[in-house]
Simulated assay, not measured.
Amino acid sequence: MLSQLKRLSLEADGRYATEAELAFLKSYFQTVRQRISGYEKIRDTEDLLMDEAEAQLTAADSQVFHKGAQDYTDTCRRDRKNTLRYTATAMLFNDLDRLRDGLLLWQRTIVRAVKDEQASTMTWEQMPGVLRGHLSSEEADLMMPALHLTQALLH
């Protein structure tokens, strides 16, 4: 939404916005309560979400956060939290452009550089299910576009 507002501000400079240009605002305001509620639930249960995701991931592969003898569980948890925060914010503001450009493209470079594609892929495949256990179906549906973008860029 923030990117769309900025774009609209530039495009409609000196004139009134058209109905078509205002459509995204009307759509956004129809879902704002669910967006805020979902964001607050994610914020308030972040540690629980991280615990559940980590348990599922280590159940699937006990070495998912290891490279040789080195355990990177804490580093991966920090990165998951950061990504989830950005993803929840993207859902709140309905701004996938900012998520993609502000975090995911950079993070994809890091994931590939340190060869963590498997852990990243597994993490973001599990996260929708984890979130659906804590959000209403409407809130979860609003999170899915941001999660799908995260999955696509961090595999």
Rank of each mutant, 00 (worst) to 15 (best):
D141V: 03
R85N: 07
Q151R: 15
D71K: 11
L153K: 04
A23Q: 14
V130T: 12
Y28T: 07
R15Y: 02
A17M: 11
T123H: 05
G102D: 04
A113S: 14
A53E: 00
R35E: 00
D51K: 11
D79L: 14
A113P: 03
S62F: 03
K115L: 11
A55L: 14
T75Q: 12
N94F: 04
H148N: 14
R35M: 03
Q63M: 15
L8T: 03
T18P: 08
D44S: 12
M91E: 01
R78D: 01
W106C: 06
S27A: 15
D116W: 14
D13F: 12
T123W: 11
S136F: 09
Q4N: 07
E125W: 08
S62A: 15
L104C: 11
L22I: 10
T58S: 01
I42N: 02
E21W: 03
L153V: 10
F24K: 05
R7N: 02
Q56W: 10
L103D: 00
R112C: 00
G68A: 11
R7G: 00
M50Q: 06
D79E: 13
A20E: 15
T89V: 10
K41G: 00
D71C: 08
R132C: 07
A59L: 13
T45V: 06
Q118N: 12
D44Q: 13
E138D: 15
G129M: 08
T83D: 07
L8I: 03
Q126I: 14
F65E: 11
L49Q: 04
D44T: 09
R7H: 02
